[in-house]
Design a protein around this nucleic acid. Structure first.
Lengths: 241, 241
DNA sequence: TTAATAGTGTCTATAAGACATTATATG
DNA sequence: CATATAATGTCTTATAGACACTATTAA
């Protein structure tokens, strides 16, 4: 890695930040969590909505992921969600305060699990429905582009992995699982094909109990290995293009 | 993003670096470029091999990718290879000099295109054959793990995209293309299936001319859209597992 | 008994794997 | 003509899509 362009290490360092894209499903629609930028004098993008995040605190954060988890827990109260690194964005121009590089993570979690920490509410937060490749308004910094990347990543991984399963709580029915896939993909998913796909991939195992409702009760399932994504041997929808 | 943990921005910033994992095929084997760490007194990991990289220079580098391209050109002379961000690694412990975050890119290019800049040769460089998930020796910093991630990414993308095609020069025969896939995947690839796969995905188009040898001449092809990866509708080898 | 949703079955389409066969150049 | 490799063809297999059909509960 190193070999400084200067002989000592006393040259200007960029700012280092971490941002988190947090997805959930509310009312059958994909939503993303945003925070409102402060309105102070020297603040960039005052009053605009942005991804939650902030500077890395080298005293508190032992690594980037710990920093991301901290920010996630602050906003949602959730401790161990599905968390994956999305990438990093760094340039001289993305923040008027100077050269910054941000490390972006994306998390996906069930809406029922969210209990925002009542302490840390200096900043206003909001859940915005995802429409197309964004939320239909411009965000602070380069967050519009980052969010678009996150949405694309989420959708494309839904085509060949079990990612959307993390939108559900521990046990769920196959219909519910099929439904979150349909929500994320933005199109209907065939029941029969979906079930064989999920079962033959060994994604789930039966849990005790059934979910009752106004009709036939549905078998409950849970993820067979909740720690790891399952990869399907093909993507959805190879038919035509 | 921001909202500083302190009220001003005058708190310690991590170091920001960029590293590049550069792959090529030499003698039918995948190789990776490494550089030797300097042996000075205060240098971490003196004399060990490491990924090429270094501090971001906020005067020179307008963004992270420009920085990666700069480092790539310094070592290989290549200006516009296939370059993709691999991820970032940042922690308090990965470099004894302090909290650092590195943004890692990976590049893949034809061996024939490489002409290392004769100027910038303070550091010794070497090409190491990839065996399994590494090169069979420990690298400086956390570069062993980073290299492993890069190799995994390269192999897994070879299963469903055209990535290995960037190991070839502008025109190539289908046999040559099949061969680089086999080298990257580390297993033989069936000719017939490979050809229909490549042709029906619209990955290549015929170029003028043929490549002659000791036998029947082979049609030359080129990438139809060299700027973008092509995605295949399925991964290779779904058979058994 | 009807409505609603769970769960299964059947048939087709797509693309890959295995492997055989044909084509065309050189020496 | 022998050899080597290019290029194509045939048959099988795995899994998805479309959609019909059966099963089981509550009201």
């Amino acid at each position: 890695m190193p070999k400084s362009p200067h002989s000592s290490q006393a040259f200007p360092r960029p700012f280092t930040t971490v941002d988190v894209v947090i997805f959930t499903v509310i009312d059958d629609q994909l939503h993303v969590l945003l925070v409102k930028r402060p309105t102070g004098e020297a603040e960039p993008y005052p009053g605009m909505w942005a991804l939650p995040g902030g500077y890395v605190d080298i005293e508190r954060d032992k690594d980037l992921e710990a920093c991301a988890l901290h920010k996630l827990q602050e906003k949602t109260g959730v401790k161990s969600p599905y968390l994956e690194q999305l990438g990093s964005w760094g340039s001289a121009s993305r923040d008027p305060r100077g050269w910054t590089a941000t490390h972006v993570y994306f998390a996906i979690l069930p809406h029922a699990a969210i209990k925002p920490d009542p302490d840390s509410h200096a900043t206003e937060i909001g859940w915005f429905p995802v429409k197309g490749d964004g939320i239909g308004r411009k965000l602070a910094f380069d967050h519009t582009a980052i969010l678009e990347t996150a949405i694309t990543r989420l959708r494309s991984k839904a085509e060949y992995t079990s990612l959307p399963a993390y939108l559900l709580t521990e046990t769920f029915t196959l219909s519910e699982l099929q439904h979150v896939f349909a929500v994320v993909l933005g199109r209907p998913v065939d029941k029969s094909g979906f079930r064989t796909r999920v079962l033959s991939a060994g994604l789930v195992e039966e849990a005790d109990g059934v979910k009752t409702g106004a009709s036939r009760p549905a078998q409950l399932y849970r993820l067979k290995s909740p720690k790891n994504l399952t990869f399907f041997p093909r993507t959805f929808n190879p038919r035509k293009e």
